[in-house]
Design a protein around this nucleic acid. Structure first.
Length: 511
RNA sequence: AGACUUGUGGUGUAAAGGUAGCACCUCAGAUUUUGGUUCUGAUAGUUAAGGUUCGAAUCCUUACAAGUCUGCCA
């Protein structure tokens, strides 16, 4: 894999960076679950770590006690385990609160940081160093209300953007932190803590998404003002790449939460979401997702990837290994003339070492039958030979009509006597006596029409399967012959429930 | 509105001043006990204009377009 990131690192090596010192980090905030976009960020870091034989830290960005929740830490660790991304250390920004506090005091002494107070609808800046230190100390011990903040004094950056010019380093938050408890009343902001954490951990290349480009000046300003030659440390370098955008769905935590509030989705495991938890629940292998990430690559430009690319990769992976079931959604009865009423022919399926029953009356899918052939209809109609999957070649002999019901009489034909070119279709079937009741849950992408309109449709269909299902496991993925891929997720009242993963091409109006 | 970033076939991504390549999509043919898969092939591209250069997707200028940011979130 070659991209602008490897180019930058190779340049750094050519310019004297010791290859042994290269180190990366993955810094999630434990405020939600990981999704496909995180896999993109993870993969580049772990790919580079492998390429340069470098170390990599999993760093939890727990700077804001209000946002973070302990349960997400375990979830992230388990997700990484499932993805088989092996990091060297787990670190927490909260471990650096003491160091960050000391560094902030150094900036105050250097007159690079100052306290700002909001009082009587006015902002007051403190100039005196001793006074600043005194207030900062008292802020730490909770002696002030939220109107006190510590700001960095960056006046050199050529911008009229006030936020960028005077970023906040510390704000007062009176909230229990899950690790430091009530020890701190002030918490560092992302801007202040992130670059410093990279520096403390000896990270050489700090990869993030392009929305942080505007913060790069702050990142570098802090580092340059903290950098101490005596420590013999390398200044980390922020490199940005564009975040993952996929049409017809979303990944952003904020937008997912809106959908949950609007009750369009129930939870973070909803199969329509691209969260790692949903992938695990759907029985995916991590390989499918990494294959996808490898294909889409990395750049700085805005992108919009068609979700079918992901679906194709999943489909091509599944096609090799999933068990095939014959499933009928809308049964249509046909009669085999050659068979006697109670005769059962057991057909042996070598692939699965199982037998399935074939009887006089069988059901095929309603859409697999038409009386007359038009528009190149390959399936069952007058004059068409059709192969029933795993069993006989049939053709319609005659059709009778009672009321509104057709009776379709078919004859079995010898495999060897029919020209192969005349059999254009192999369709699924079930015996009218032996089958399993199943339910299929179908849903569409969350968004239609370029991510602007919600798609709430969820269909639950009754269907029938041949009886090959045994030792069925939750989360196991099955292929429904000619329909698509589904995963089994529950068994209630003698009914097996399956949820959609991917449907096969539907343009010929199969279903 | 400003600041910043980015513009390569329909989509995604390579080419670090020297042959515009790869993958997906689409289309066609072959294979096929899935109208699936697989295989072969075809179509199609450097946002625009100017400049530097023997030579520009690449460097410079201008225009245009898209995205991000303008949070005491990260």
């Amino acid at each position: 894999m070659n991209n602008f990131i490897t180019n930058i690192i190779n340049n750094d090596i050519n310019n004297g960076l010791d290859i042994k010192k290269i180190k990366f980090r993955f810094p999630p905030e434990p405020n939600g679950v990981l999704h496909l976009g995180h896999i993109k960020a993870l993969y580049i870091n772990f790919y580079l770590a492998k390429k340069y034989n470098a170390k990599i830290n999993l760093r939890f960005e727990d700077t804001n006690p209000i946002n973070i929740k302990y349960k997400y830490i375990n979830n992230i660790i388990n997700n990484l385990k499932w993805l088989n991304f092996k990091y060297n250390n787990i670190t927490y920004v909260s471990d650096y609160f003491n160091i960050l506090y000391k560094l902030a005091k150094i900036l105050i002494i250097k007159k690079k940081a100052y306290i700002q107070i909001f009082k009587n609808n006015k902002l007051y800046n403190i100039n005196n160093i001793e006074h600043n230190l005194h207030i900062f100390h008292n802020m730490k011990y909770g002696k002030y209300n939220k109107n006190y903040i510590l700001k960095a004094k960056i006046n050199n950056i050529n911008t009229n953007n006030y936020y960028i010019n005077n970023p906040i380093m510390y704000r007062i938050i009176n909230y229990k932190h899950f690790r430091t408890k009530y020890n701190w009343n002030i918490f560092p902001t992302y801007d202040w803590s992130h670059g410093q954490s990279d520096y403390i951990e000896n990270i050489t290349h700090s990869l993030c998404s392009t929305e942080f480009i505007i913060h790069k000046n702050i990142y570098n300003w802090y580092l340059n003002n903290i950098y101490n030659k005596n420590f013999n440390k390398i200044l980390p370098k922020q490199i940005e790449f564009s975040r993952l955008n996929i049409n017809n769905t979303i990944t952003s935590k904020r937008k997912i939460n809106i959908l949950i509030k609007k009750k369009i989705i129930n939870n973070l495991c909803d199969p329509r979401l691209l969260t790692i938890n949903s992938f695990i629940k759907k029985g995916y292998s991590n390989k499918y997702l990494i294959d996808f990430i490898k294909v889409i690559g990395y750049s700085k430009r805005n992108n919009n990837i068609n979700i079918n690319l992901l679906n194709n990769i999943i489909k091509n992976n599944l096609i090799k290994k999933s068990i095939k079931l014959m499933v009928i959604i809308k049964p249509f009865k046909i009669i085999i003339k050659n068979f006697k009423n109670n005769y059962i022919k057991w057909i042996y399926l070598k692939e699965y070492n199982k037998i399935i029953p074939f009887t006089k009356y069988i059901y095929i899918e309603k859409k697999d039958f038409k009386i007359k052939n038009y528009n190149n209809f390959y399936r069952l109609c007058i004059n068409n030979y059709v192969r029933l999957k795993y069993s006989y070649i049939i053709k319609i002999d005659n059709i009778t009509k009672n009321n509104n019901n057709y009776n379709i009489y078919c004859s079995i034909y010898n495999n060897n006597k029919i020209n192969k070119n005349n059999i254009k279709s192999t369709i699924q079937w079930i015996s009218n006596k032996y089958y399993l009741k199943i339910k299929i849950i179908l849903y569409d992408y969350i968004f239609i029409n370029n991510n602007k309109i919600y798609n709430k449709k969820i269909k639950i269909l009754n269907a029938y399967s041949n009886i090959i299902i045994e030792n069925i496991k939750i989360n196991k993925i099955y292929q429904f012959h000619r329909i698509g891929f589904f995963y089994f997720y529950k068994y209630i009242n003698k009914i097996y429930y399956f949820k959609k993963i991917i449907l096969f091409n539907n343009k010929n109006n199969l279903y």
